[in-house]
């Protein structure tokens, strides 16, 4: 297990290198640089902007700029947000925490709802519950977060049961995470249902049942096998949740990373955008890594490959 973990962690390093290079190169394509926006402000002397350029090393060749950037990021320095006039590390960390809270609770919600539902529907395919679940999962998949957020916002306003935006307390978390989880729940129920139906047809399940195991133990046997693909999917889904969080955060006024990216693009605070995208990519890579480790823990076949 230890060797597997180590190998898997080492594998992410070249990936991270490539990702950071790609993102950095992308932002170097932008005409002008991070300080060009300042030139539009007549009250800042040109001299000062040139000095800042020198100070931030914006005149150096590409590869030096890249390695300086990576070095600074590794030391935990994410620069300065010119739009919000504060250190970008604090800003991004604060927003990141909020986004992680939101996505993790959405993920937890997804698992709590979709796992029992996926198993129950697979046990009685074609029956009432199954059809109902399939119908709602189709709706859930077709209801993008933009629309779901608006519907929930409307609901929250009409009933007054939940706050319509902002942070603080669990109360504020309910609607954003539910909105975010909705398409994921639909996706999970559909996939787990198919996996379970396939697994329940396997000879080892028949054998377990023939041996006289109690029904719930048989289902447990099947579940442990059927859940493996779902663990990989969970890692990938995390990317989807992060994407969805951008919209949800904007609509529910949840101060997260996605909202920060959009606001920073609108205020041309591009260095912050760059670092946010890097941080979000790190999150995805970490989520996939975690999913692989959980998979290895659940499925010994992968561990001993």
């Amino acid at each position: 297990m230890f060797r597997f973990v180590l190998r898997r962690i080492l594998e992410t390093i070249p990936l991270l290198f490539l990702i950071s290079l790609l993102i950095f190169a992308l932002f170097k394509l932008i005409p002008g640089d991070y300080l060009s926006e300042m030139e539009l402000n007549p009250s800042i002397p040109r001299q000062r902007i040139e000095e800042l350029r020198q100070e931030y090393g914006l005149k150096q060749p590409f590869y030096i700029q890249y390695f300086t950037w990576v070095g600074q990021v590794l030391q935990g320095n994410l620069g300065y947000s010119f739009a919000q006039q504060r250190s970008a590390v604090e800003l991004i960390l604060e927003r990141l925490t909020n986004t992680v809270i939101l996505t993790i609770s959405a993920l937890a919600l997804t698992i709590i709802v979709s796992f029992p539902l996926g198993i129950l529907t697979a046990l009685n395919p074609g029956r009432g519950l199954d059809r109902l679940a399939l119908f709602f999962s189709l709706i859930g998949l077709s209801l993008p977060s933009v629309l779901a957020s608006l519907i929930f916002l409307f609901f929250a306003f009409r009933t007054g049961w939940f706050p319509i935006g902002g942070t603080g307390g669990l109360h504020h978390l309910v609607l954003p995470s539910l909105t975010l989880a909705l398409p994921t729940i639909a996706f999970f129920v559909r996939n787990l249902r198919l996996e379970m139906i396939d697994t329940l047809r396997q000879p080892f399940v028949t054998a377990a049942a023939a041996k006289g195991l109690r029904p719930y133990r048989v289902v447990l046997h099947a579940f442990r096998n059927a859940v493996n693909p779902m663990i990989s999917i969970t890692g990938i889904t995390f990317g989807g949740l992060l994407s969805g969080s951008v919209v949800v955060e904007k609509i529910f006024d949840w101060p997260g990373l996605g909202a920060l990216v959009v606001d920073s693009i609108l205020s041309r605070d591009l260095f912050v955008v760059l670092n946010c995208v890097l941080v979000s990519a790190l999150l995805i890579v970490a989520a996939n890594l975690l999913a692989d480790l959980v998979l290895a823990w659940n499925d010994p076949r992968i561990r001993y490959q």
Partner: peptide, 8 residues
């Protein structure tokens, strides 16, 4: 991450 890359 999809939307983050799109925004970038």
């Amino acid at each position: 991450p999809g939307l983050f890359l799109i925004l970038a």
